[in-house]
């Protein structure tokens, strides 16, 4: 059943050979990226490319460094006390680890959606969506109104909340809260959106909706999604990276990773002989 879905939804991309991948536009890439928590090294030098307007899934057993990896992509990793990074992360031609880089600008271009929905509890639905704009100095009412409607529409939440925009964000269900958080991220017009296990706290129906949403966002955004759910990775991603113990074991088109991986470890993990 699961395999059928993959077969039918398979796109030309997923069967592409690695050499053809090289010609796609690379949105972000990392070079020898290492991440530390104090003296503990969580990532051992990752080289990876993230292709523009595609969804890239990151899979692997828990503790393999997949969350740490995407938290390096928007420099959220170093927010944890004692954490630091080495190596390079590029967004287009920009080196994100350069000294004089504007962190705020980076985080606006690279949005993030977290494991558990985290709407701001004291803000209304409206203010939650435009928090990134309002708290960055944008006061124009009609601009904000438009941004809120646009973002909620894109996040497929507009119909459900348009009559209660001034209600607390906490009044929504878990799945709605997560889509609110996606709308919130969309409002600042990012180019890349990072999803850190966005469905792990949701029920199957909400998960379906969020997956659908991510699928539709690929048109305009570059997506990176961490997931522990292999079916989910297979369903929504074009490329997949398999992480194990802080290293990138294998990276390639999702179709290839899931049907004919190069490495034995990848196959063991995919087929469930491991973890």
């Amino acid at each position: 059943m699961e395999n059928d879905t993959i077969e039918t939804e398979m796109t030309a991309e997923q069967t592409m050979t690695p050499s053809l991948e090289e010609t796609r536009k690379v949105k972000m890439f990392t070079e020898d990226l290492k991440a530390y928590f104090g003296t503990f090294r969580a990532l051992h030098g990752i080289d990876m490319r993230i292709f523009s307007n595609r969804a890239t899934a990151i899979i692997g057993p828990s503790g393999c460094g997949k969350s740490t990896f995407i938290r390096c992509l928007n420099r959220m990793h170093e927010f944890v006390p004692g954490a630091r990074t080495e190596g390079k992360v590029f967004l287009d031609e920009k080196d994100l680890f350069k000294k004089d880089i504007d962190l705020i600008e980076i985080r606006r271009s690279i949005g993030m959606v977290f494991q558990r929905p985290n709407p701001f509890p004291t803000l209304s639905i409206y203010d939650n969506v435009c928090a990134g704009l309002k708290l960055s100095g944008i006061k124009n009412k009609s601009f904000l109104n438009q941004a809120v409607e646009e973002s909620l529409l894109k996040a497929a939440l507009w119909e459900e909340v348009k009559d209660k925009l001034n209600h607390s964000g906490m009044s929504l269900s878990g799945g709605q809260q997560q889509r609110l958080c996606i709308a919130r991220a969309l409002a600042v017009k990012p180019e890349v959106i990072l999803f850190d296990e966005p469905c792990s706290a949701l029920d199957p129906i909400s998960t379906g909706k969020v997956e659908e949403l991510i699928h539709s966002l690929k048109e305009n955004y570059t997506i990176v999604i961490v997931t522990h759910n292999m079916q989910q990775a297979a369903r929504i991603s074009d490329y997949t990276g398999y992480f194990y113990l802080g290293t990138l074991v294998e990276f390639g088109a999702t179709k290839k990773i899931f049907t004919n991986p190069d490495k034995q470890e990848t196959e063991d993990y995919i087929t469930g002989r491991f973890g």
Partner: peptide
């Protein structure tokens, strides 16, 4: 896609 939002920068 470029960022056309007029953010205020207060460094």
């Amino acid at each position: 896609m470029t960022n056309e939002i007029p953010f205020k920068k207060i460094w």
